[in-house]
Write a protein that binds this DNA or RNA. Structure first.
Lengths: 326, 326
DNA sequence: TATCATTGTGTAAGCGATTTCAATGACAGG
DNA sequence: CCTGTCATTGAAATCGCTTACACAATGATA
């Protein structure tokens, strides 16, 4: 492995000069030229490990996600990756498989070492999370949840759910049911349910508390909850779900119980999943700019790290949403 | 930041002793105890950067994927992450967005530095790829393609496609069309098409070359190709696709042209996408153990890196498949 | 008793970069 | 001619850890 010293010797300069050449310090034109050639000749590339040890910066960003195989998360990740790549950083990905404790574990692992900053795609935010975030040694940005005192990029789930509920109330005749997710997930659980309920209520068609179920983000959980709903309350004519994935499950349940194709006009979701859109022609749902949230969060983080002038700094950013097919 | 020397002083030993304690070298019981307490007291954690510089190993594995937001890739990634986490490694993720040149770029970037090994989720494998792989400084494992002379974990796409074609030939009456992908993707392009054709032929119902189209992995491309097929050859009664995603597009096209619900029994795919399965009740498709391939590839790689005895070594591993809904 | 593994320990030499520091030469102003 | 800037330069000191080496003990073996 050719190192800086070799390049320096070949170019007839000190290794300090080579370092300066590489980092844009004082260097005369002719030496710069000689160094440039020596580098090309030797194929030298500098050791990021040595550099990291000396400078304390690894150009690595830790990204913690709850589950890699979900459309929303992978879109967010795509956005994060875009910005990172463009700005010379790399992504250290940690998949927690929906286990909140592994999230904390990674938060620890990351700040204890190699990363310059962290992007946390958050679901549940416990007090422990808040504490860990507050005491984090490196800058951190949250995506998906609004946490006081932390930098976050999120969507207004309450408002979106309100609008959806309000719009649906007028178009659905018959009983509406709701399949939510754990309220520990403030955004997808609490906010969406509350917003939806408020929207229905405002439209004069309040949600019957007996028709609320809880799934676990998966398609199967949406299916089970819907089956149960349909057997307990056969007069339910519409099932709103907290995620498109669960809506797909509910849709299947309705199809099974009431005949193929029936479900399509009787469920709604959140997230505007591409598959669902194509296969159903589009159920009522909320479109969020997931890729954008990845991009924005990461830009914010890197601006802080790189000390970009006129930087946006670590702050809170609420992104818009869009009702689909209502 | 408390460093090893601080711990050593507090424990009244040399830093070499602390290092030995941490790495399992010779150390007496009482010193070990003192060191343990000193570490707890100070909250010391060792600098992975210094360690990396000294040992030359980063405990980082580079993972190159063509596209993060696809079910197959994210399942593979989940498998990779599982093994990595369990064995004390971390994942450096590079998303190439389906650009083969960025793949080479990352291959370069990675081996030039911080990673101990590479997992490449391959699509197109050009000669440049082969060269880059062969000259790779760190161990590398490919997933999804079979490349001579490189370690790979892959599926037998030809055989699977053959079986699918053979099975479908008997069940479909009327003309069968095929929507493939670029043949530069040997597995998903070339092998699947050839296998499918051979399967149909073997069943005495050969594929009409005029009914072959090419998509680009996306849902929309499947949709367009199917629309075009249906208008050019209205008597086509079944459209086989090289991926479930394109099948979803084709399904939508058929629904539009022939009425909702019609498509479901008239398309087939590859990959056994969960959404598609739920929403259609299951089209003929091939199930691959994507998660398993991530697990196997990574285990193989880490075994080599860690010098596990009885190691499996870097070799070639062909995983099985399963026909679904035929 | 002499000899030799075996264990335990500290000293010090790196790993390969960045960066401080002092030194140099050139050049403008007084 | 002297002095003060200013751009350039290399020597050398880190960054925090691992490990080769030398050297002690200690117990086992001949």
């Amino acid at each position: 492995m050719v190192k800086m010293k070799d390049v320096a010797e070949l170019a007839g300069v000190s290794s300090a000069a080579v370092s300066r050449y590489l980092n844009g310090g004082y260097i005369s034109a002719d030496k710069a030229e000689r160094i440039k050639q020596a580098i090309e000749l030797t194929g030298y590339v500098r050791s990021s490990q040595a550099r990291a040890l000396r400078t304390g910066s690894t150009k690595l960003i830790g990204v913690i996600v709850p589950k890699i195989n979900s459309e929303s998360v992978s879109r967010i990740t795509a956005g994060i990756g875009q910005v990172l790549g463009r700005r010379g950083y790399q992504m250290l990905l940690a998949n927690t498989d929906n286990a909140a404790d592994r999230e904390l574990e990674y938060l620890d692992l990351f700040q204890n070492h190699p990363v310059d900053g962290i992007v946390l795609v958050a679901t549940m935010v416990t007090d422990e999370h808040r504490a860990a975030i507050a005491s984090c040694r490196v800058p951190i940005v949250l995506i998906g949840q609004h946490v006081e005192g932390a930098a976050c990029v999120y969507h207004d789930d309450y408002e979106a759910a309100f609008e959806l509920g309000h719009a649906l109330a007028g178009r659905v005749d018959g009983k509406i049911a709701y399949i939510g997710v754990t309220e520990e997930d403030r955004a997808a659980g609490y906010d969406r349910r509350r917003g939806f309920e408020a929207g229905l209520r405002a439209a004069g068609n309040p949600l019957d508390a007996a028709l609320i179920r809880r799934g676990s983000f998966t398609l199967d959980s949406g299916y089970s909850a819907a089956r149960e709903l349909l057997s307990v309350a056969p007069d339910v004519s519409f099932i709103a779900c907290a995620t498109d994935t669960m809506a797909a499950g509910a849709l299947r349940a309705i199809d099974e119980v009431r005949g193929m194709g029936e479900g399509i006009h009787r469920v709604s979701g959140f997230g505007d999943n591409a598959f669902l859109r194509a296969l159903t022609g589009g159920i009522p749902t909320v479109h969020y700019g997931y890729l954008t949230s990845g991009v924005e969060a990461t830009s914010m983080l890197l601006d802080t790290l790189d000390g970009v002038e006129g930087e946006r700094g670590l702050k809170t950013l609420k992104l818009g949403h869009q009702l689909m097919n209502v």
